[in-house]
């Protein structure tokens, strides 16, 4: 790579791992999480831009999902602080994180099988007074809000082409439809930042296209999106910004086409993906380039020893 300083409209200053953003929505500092002797996450500094689709990529075991779980309160860090829209969210329970407007989905879909699709949706809504044990007993206290959120749920279901399924049990949906349901359900609370954990995993190509479309639409509605993905192909089409993790650290970040050519990224992917196509990257032959990088790396290592 050249030594010239690269800039980008989302970034305040030079582009690089842990760079400052013009308008960050999440700022994380010194976040670490160890499992026994293994350091799963060790992020020194990272900022996630607002009103953009950010992809968090990295090979298997890079700590993406663990980092995701930490940010959303589903796991507790050993050290670290992070803030969401200026409020510190470190060690805040998951349900409070969600109420602040940072709503997540799961890699393995968690549709609530023995509830109807519509009920799944209604669960996503906020400010329903009937969710209190005592007000629940008196229907007039919550039926108005129920009507409002039902209308909203039906609108969202129509958008995700699930409306005709609304009375079916969620367990009867196909894997891809469950992904759609989970995304739609997360939207019920009008999140500020929506966090999708591998939204495209295990989904057929046709549905992948429609999922990508939906994600783009979230951005056009003013939401910020952060999604985890380990397949670089998917990322290129929709993300504005890519953060690459490997062995728990942020090793690179930048706009997608640039990141794909970053030697650190190729390096990170080489171990896990040495026998697969890294994607049709523009410019030089990626395979040869990757081999060169690997050779350099090996030489450096030998020199160090």
């Amino acid at each position: 790579m050249s030594d010239t300083i690269v800039t980008h409209p989302l970034v305040d200053g030079a582009v690089g791992p842990g760079c400052k953003k013009v308008d960050p929505i999440v700022v994380a500092d010194g976040v670490t999480r160890t499992f026994g002797g293994l350091t799963a996450v060790d992020v020194a500094h990272v900022e996630i831009p607002r009103h953009a689709i950010t992809a968090l990529i990295g090979p298997n075991g890079a700590g993406k999902t663990t980092f995701f779980n930490l940010l959303t309160g589903f796991d507790k860090p050993n050290t670290g602080e992070w803030s969401f829209e200026g409020h510190s969210l470190a060690r805040v329970p998951a349900f409070r994180v969600s109420r602040k407007g940072m709503v997540r989905t799961f890699q393995l879909t968690k549709s609530l099988g023995r509830l109807s699709v519509l009920q799944n949706m209604l669960l996503g809504a906020t400010k329903q007074p009937g969710e209190n044990l005592f007000t629940a007993l008196i229907k007039p206290l919550w039926s108005k809000r129920e009507q409002a959120i039902t209308a909203k749920a039906e609108e969202l279901l129509a958008r995700f082409k699930l409306l005709e399924k609304s009375e079916d049990y969620a367990a009867s949906l196909s894997g891809g439809q469950r992904k759609l349901l989970e995304m739609a359900r997360a939207l019920m609370s009008d999140p500020v930042l929506i966090m999708l954990d591998e939204p495209m995993a295990g989904v057929n190509p046709a549905l992948t296209q429609s999922l990508l479309g939906h994600i783009k639409q979230l951005k056009s509605e003013g939401m910020s999106v952060l999604f985890v993905e380990h397949d670089m192909h998917m990322v290129r089409h929709i993300s504005d910004w890519v953060i690459v993790m490997a062995e728990g650290k942020v090793v690179a970040e930048g706009p997608p086409d640039q990141v794909m050519n970053d030697p650190a990224v190729i390096d990170a992917y080489l171990g896990a993906h040495h026998d697969t196509d890294l994607g049709d990257m523009t410019g030089a032959n990626p395979v040869i380039e990757a081999k060169e990088v690997a050779a350099q790396h090996a030489a450096k290592k030998e020199g160090a020893i």
Partner: peptide, 19 residues
Amino acid sequence: PWGRVVKGIREDEDAVRSL
């Protein structure tokens, strides 16, 4: 809606927590 949350917890706690 209280019952809906409780039944949701029966199906998957983490999903309900994330909401």
